[in-house]
């Protein structure tokens, strides 16, 4: 049981590493937010699943299961708010972008 939990924690940290590399490498705010939110959220969920395997169905395991949906909703809603706030603040899309449909709505 502990071996399975350990493998889940390793996978989670690998995904966290990918997310953080994306946070450094990608060119503008929106792309950074995309890579970081997806990878880091699923990586942390994987770590919590590993914790469930360590504890079994006791006090700690149930807590880890409860933490997963809270983490999902908190991370997605926070990312949504940050994207909208950054756009209204006036940060342009990067040089590589090809399309912007949201411009007309925001102007009016």
């Amino acid at each position: 049981m502990e071996i399975i939990g350990f493998i889940f924690i390793c996978i989670g940290i690998l995904f966290n590493l990918f997310g953080c590399i994306g946070l450094i490498r990608l060119p503008d705010v929106y792309n950074r937010l995309q890579s970081a939110t997806k990878c880091v959220t699923l990586g942390t969920c994987s770590i919590l699943i590993g914790v469930v395997f360590y504890y079994g169905f006791t006090n700690g395991g149930i807590k880890a299961i409860v933490a997963i949906p809270i983490l999902f909703f908190a991370a997605t809603v926070a990312a949504h708010a940050l994207v909208k706030g950054a756009y209204i603040f006036g940060i342009k899309l990067g040089d590589k972008s090809v399309k912007d449909d949201y411009k007309d709505v925001h102007k009016s």
Partner: peptide, 16 residues
């Protein structure tokens, strides 16, 4: 906005 993205991701990493 870049700084705020960093703060947000930092908060999730602390949970791990």
């Amino acid at each position: 906005a870049d700084r705020m993205v960093g703060i947000d991701i930092f908060g999730i990493l602390v949970v791990g």
